[in-house]
Design a protein around this nucleic acid. Structure first.
Lengths: 117, 117
DNA sequence: TCAACCTCTCAACGATTATTGATACAATGA
DNA sequence: TCATTGTATCAATAATCGTTGAGAGGTTGA
């Protein structure tokens, strides 16, 4: 990931409504959710929701597909992992123990050290 | 990490100068760098650099300590891992294979699947 | 075709943010 | 104490961003 895209992504995530949408879609999994369902959970007017979904799509963090009269939005997982890699590029001067342990709590980011525990 | 802190952190990372500072300090390791050295690498005027360093410190992403007439800034690694956990909380409906593989490129985030390759 | 539904686009306002230059503060060595 | 170096603060300007409401474009089932 290049710097420009990372900046756009972080800007997209720095807004309350958008951050909630993203977390909701990350939890929803690859199947995603219809725009209307997202709006109900988030509690946003249609125009506001649409504005932020478009923003997130331009940032490359979510994608959309039409399903009948619904538009289904879903998280673009590689965008998030790319963002994390960009942020922590060449981190800790090669000492993973500095930044890795705190990630263990997530089932998605097991670290080698924890597997023997 | 709660939502408010995450929003502040993402906002801090969505600015070019600050993102460069953060990546520089992440690479620099726990020892950190003097403000002046950061400014030389980043290419920022003293007032701008100071403004952004203060911003990052308030966001909890970097910390400072005085060493003689220098002020040394360093990355707060737990803040980054906490941010990642918050963002990907309950991700992928429990299927790590969806979001974890892309992290393998970083020495800090090995995934179980790759270890046998 | 028609009505109902879902979603998007647009313009305007208010609020927030980045940048700059000047100035002030703190620590060091002579 | 004095000059030098490193860093922070302040005020003003320009630019960017979020919210809102009205209106329009597609899609569906009858």
């Amino acid at each position: 990931m290049e710097e420009d895209r990372a900046l756009v992504a972080f800007a997209a995530l720095s807004q309350e409504t958008r951050l909630r949408i993203v977390r909701l879609l990350v939890q929803a999994g690859p199947d995603g959710m219809a725009a209307g369902s997202i709006g109900e959970v988030i509690g946003a007017t249609t125009s506001r929701l649409s504005f932020h979904l478009t923003h997130l799509e331009h940032a490359g963090l979510v994608q959309s597909r039409r399903d009948g009269r619904f538009i289904i939005y879903s998280a673009v997982y590689p965008a998030f992992t790319g963002l994390i890699q960009f942020l922590l590029h060449d981190c800790c001067q090669g000492h993973p123990e500095i930044c890795a342990p705190a990630l263990d709590a997530s089932p998605c980011f097991p670290s080698k050290e924890r597997e023997n525990v």
